[in-house]
Write a protein that binds this DNA or RNA. Sequence first.
DNA 1: CCGAATCCTGATGGATACTG
DNA 2: CAGTATCCATCAGGATTCGG
Lengths: 135, 135
Amino acid sequence: MTAVDPSAPKSAYDRSCAATASGGTDGRAIRDVLDRIGDKWSLLVIGTLRDERLRFSELQRHIPGISQRMLTLTLRQLERDGLITRTVHAEVPPRVEYELTELGATLIEVATALAEWAIARHPLIEQSRAAYDAR
Amino acid sequence: MTAVDPSAPKSAYDRSCAATASGGTDGRAIRDVLDRIGDKWSLLVIGTLRDERLRFSELQRHIPGISQRMLTLTLRQLERDGLITRTVHAEVPPRVEYELTELGATLIEVATALAEWAIARHPLIEQSRAAYDAR
DNA sequence: CCGAATCCTGATGGATACTG
DNA sequence: CAGTATCCATCAGGATTCGG
């Protein structure tokens, strides 16, 4: 399960690697997505909204350490990208709820794969770092 | 294939989401990996080394736009994390070759999934952005 | 050829104070 | 409650120069 089939046909990844640097369409796609999920909070917000529709203050409690500013900015970006929806209820005090879209839900699948890889391989990485730093 | 099963047991992703913010072990794993592949060049270098062992100058040619400095830094990080190996051949002029490790090869699999998601969903994202900006 | 060292810029993100 | 506005520190990363 670890080896990569060298005879595999050109994959999205192959195309992306050449395309990213040369500015092709696929490359922009990869860069766009990486810029989003690569930032500090987006993936965390997505994950928090996985199976709950939450309001602003609830999100802030679920994600310790996030500032109001960053939560706002992150939510705006995700909404703009169509990964979450923002619903304002006309009440006092105001109530705003955020929910994952279908598109956002599909991202969780690949994010899960990434998270599982990270958790599974992290010990090896830490070990490698320790060995490297010890030289 | 798009929907997420709400009855699914706690996944690595669930754990990671809570753990990342609270500083748990899993959370650090996710953050570490995201900090690596989320940066500008790492994933691109990994992809370029997918099925070729390349030397420094070759990498630089394969990845247009990367500076010497960033290539060096990126390679050092990846080597430290055990994702690539660095081999110095005692010759003049010097020849240094970089190669993917087994660990690095496993990363390509999840990176491919991410790349495919990005390319497949990018049109919807762009469309959503356009709609958002038009308001 | 393969870097290391230095300088410099823009972007990211935290802290804080204020508002409808 | 759910933001907005402002200021400020940090840092990734580009350009350039020098060295083994």
